[in-house]
Design a protein around this nucleic acid. Structure first.
Lengths: 207, 207
DNA sequence: CGGTTAATAGAACTGGAGTCCCGTTATGGA
DNA sequence: TCCATAACGGGACTCCAGTTCTATTAACCG
């Protein structure tokens, strides 16, 4: 035996031209279905039909619904939005919160995040993609808290990543557990709450 | 024609004895599968097998995976945990946060909440059950903030429900978007952050 | 205690999701 | 430009989730 192994995922050896077009079409169709029907109604045969692609292809390259969603998240993670700097902690956190709020309020993106979070609950691969995504985003924004610490706005020893997470958390919580809309006022409130708690020393790491 | 309508959900006319046993067995099996395999692997035939119940019964009474999950949530919502009163805002919020943390950290309950949140993303019925659940819990705890306002701990006009949500939010965010564990320290941090932000007036309603 | 019928269980059926096989296309390297 | 083969596409096949029909069991009512 010798032809086991050595099949490192289809689409990696010749990623150009047709392969790329197929991937784009499939991921587009996936996002579309997610936005209008949600995660539970995803099925690969339907995706193939919508993307006008052979269903064999979809099954070979992605295999499962969760695998498809995970790949979609990886695709989105590429488009990193650069962090803005305003010179104050509250300003920076507000910019971050508004970015998150806009993303979640958008029907397509909001539906995608719901789906990825759902997929992460049962598929380790999707979970890994999700954790990686948020880890990257949090690290991208953490420096603004460190700068605030340097300016003396927050106590030394403040856990920067925890402050960033605290800014996003209420927005996700509102999206997932209530029927309430998600607007700019929510973003601003989340930012000012996180800033106030940080100034009060709520995120100082334990000794 | 005359026998249309008038079929108000099986299990409502004779809820005793066998019907109740079947429901308990099915919901138990559901929770079990959720805990060990996750939402995506739920299928009604398998649930029927595990519960040692005819699969026709499961399909007739619950119909879909999301319907099953929604009923499980309703069942859980029954066991309302009474609010504790400690005399201070921080104490009350800490009690609340620890309750949430214990719930989410428990494998069965944690998996259930992930599943319900996932189901709510695609099924309106599950979404309704979920929103109702959280609405009830938030209202149960909101009075502790109003008492704090009466004591002068937080400014007048503070949105009590928003404070309660802010206490839970970081715990859910951590559960859903990171691989990090969820322990008592997280609960205490969430509570003190919410208390600090509330004292600073971050949750005062707009005029 | 029966009698009515709500509710369950079994068995047979069906539609479509997921798999397999093999011919076709077109990518990337020479 | 041409070739080897990675990747795609179509059609046939399989298997099981979900449905339908009917017989059986046991709640609730009097």
């Amino acid at each position: 035996m010798e032809l086991t192994e050595a099949t490192p995922d289809p689409g990696t050896a010749r990623p150009g031209g047709r392969t790329a077009r197929v991937r784009a079409a499939v991921l587009d169709a996936t996002a579309e279905v997610l936005a209008e029907q949600g995660f539970a109604h995803l099925d690969l045969t339907d995706i193939a039909r919508r993307a006008e692609v052979g269903k064999t292809t979809v099954y070979r390259r992605w295999g499962t619904v969760t695998g498809l969603v995970a790949d979609l998240l990886l695709e989105m993670a590429q488009q990193s939005v650069p962090r803005t700097e305003t010179g104050s902690l509250l300003g920076d956190l507000t910019a971050n919160a508004r970015l998150v709020q806009r993303t979640l309020a958008d029907p397509r993106q909001g539906a995608l995040f719901r789906a990825v979070i759902a997929a992460a609950g049962s598929d380790p691969k999707a979970a890994q993609a999700l954790y990686g995504f948020y880890s990257a985003r949090v690290e991208e924004w953490a420096p603004c808290v460190e700068q605030a610490a340097a300016r003396g706005e927050v106590p030394d020893g403040t856990d920067a990543q925890e402050v960033i997470r605290a800014t996003s958390a209420p927005l996700y919580y509102r999206l997932l557990t209530t029927a309430l809309p998600l607007d700019t006022a929510d973003a601003d409130r989340a930012a000012s709450a996180a800033a106030a708690a940080a100034r009060a020393g709520a995120y100082v790491r334990e000794p």
